[in-house]
Amino acid sequence: MRILLTGSTGFIGHTLQAALERAGHSVHGGVSPRRSTLQPGQVPTDFVHDTTAAAWLPRLAGMDAVVNAVGVLRDTRERPIDAVHRDAPIALFDACAEAGVQRIVQISALGIEGSSTRYAQTKLAAEAHLKGLAAQNRLRPAILRPSVVFGKGGDSSALFMNLARLPVALFPGAVLDARVQPVSVHDLAAAVVALLGPAMEQVGTIECTGPEPLTMGAFIASLRQQLGHPPAMVLRLSQPLTELSARLGDAVPQSPWCSETLAMLGSDNVGHPAVFERLLGRPGVHYSQLVATAWR
């Protein structure tokens, strides 16, 4: 198949492209038009300004499917979250319906239901529009909602690994207690390959998780154990100081730590892996094996 993969140079997108190409597909990687040079097979895709279907139609010529793996953690002037998560994807989906490119794989996120964060609300808006087009039989989408995605090259994964190396660590209490169900980035890629191959008829929302949930504190401790280190001393940051640190992060656009991050990391992010495991044909990688299998 000829596949347009948006966000192809990101952590998840890069892994998806490699897996899809190994499966024999021709992947046209969407990249920011701000790049000075394009590599062979790359397509400029502007998720800041391309918010009409007409802007996307030329990029869909000859395509059989679209995988959208574009995402940002927080709102910035350079990459406004409303445009990146909602407006541009909606325009892309409308263009797909117009061009007859029915197969869409949308990489969303687990834990967005009921969340008031702009990250969640913009992701949900794109999902709702995609589901509306599916209800009209104009598209056949699969929406993947992964829990914490772990792998080499991921900013959050690198943060977790750095924290796991510290003999003494200070964590916000809400983050320590939040439950997650980490998923290997390679398992997520395998699911996308299945959805564009043997599971082409699978549609709807799919929760992508590892086989077992645990608290974030226990996850960091497991990573430390996998690295061969003894247990660390863990200190709990009080809620007032946690909120203050997040507000300070709000004032620094480059910082990954902010009020939105606190709201997301301080909430449970778990799901039911049954459909995901059927796509894989096996259980996902257990969190206790992530360093050996995904940190490479």
Rank of each mutant, 00 (worst) to 15 (best):
L92M: 06
R2L: 10
A88C: 00
G210V: 15
D268C: 01
R34F: 02
V291L: 03
T6H: 08
A218I: 02
L159K: 14
G100D: 04
S255V: 02
S255C: 07
S147N: 12
L159F: 15
A263K: 14
A135T: 14
L124H: 06
L92N: 00
A135W: 14
M216Y: 11
V48E: 12
G13F: 00
P198K: 10
A126I: 01
G7R: 06
L279A: 09
Q239D: 15
A292K: 15
F160C: 04
S32T: 02
I220E: 00
V180D: 03
R22C: 12
M264K: 13
S115N: 13
S288P: 01
L57V: 01
L38A: 09
K152C: 05
L241T: 13
L235W: 13
L130E: 08
G228T: 03
D250T: 03
V27N: 09
R140W: 10
V27T: 05
A88T: 01
A191D: 01
L124F: 08
L38Q: 03
I206C: 08
R34S: 11
R165T: 03
V27C: 02
I81F: 00
E113D: 10
S157G: 05
K131F: 11
S115M: 14
V285L: 10
G197Q: 12
A95S: 04
H129S: 08
A246W: 15
D94E: 15
R79I: 04
G24E: 08
L241A: 15
S245G: 04
R74T: 13
S32V: 01
H286T: 02
I220P: 01
A199I: 10
S238E: 04
S108Y: 00
G29S: 10
L139W: 01
L227H: 09
Q254Y: 08
R74L: 12
E277G: 10
G217L: 05
R138A: 11
N137F: 11
A95P: 04
S267T: 14
V67P: 05
A135L: 13
D250N: 13
K152F: 06
M1T: 10
T6W: 01
T51F: 04
T76M: 12
A109T: 07
E207D: 09
R282L: 07
V252G: 07
G71Y: 04
A178D: 05
G10I: 09
G100N: 06
E260M: 11
D75S: 07
M161E: 14
D82A: 14
Q289K: 09
D75T: 07
Q102K: 05
G284A: 14
V66T: 01
A55D: 11
P172H: 03
N68D: 04
A91T: 06
L280C: 12
I220H: 07
P44Y: 01
H272T: 15
L227K: 10
S8V: 06
P58H: 06
N68I: 03
F150M: 13
F11C: 07
A169H: 08
L279V: 07
T15D: 11
P182N: 13
L38M: 07
A292Q: 15
A53T: 00
A23C: 05
V31D: 05
N137T: 13
V192S: 12
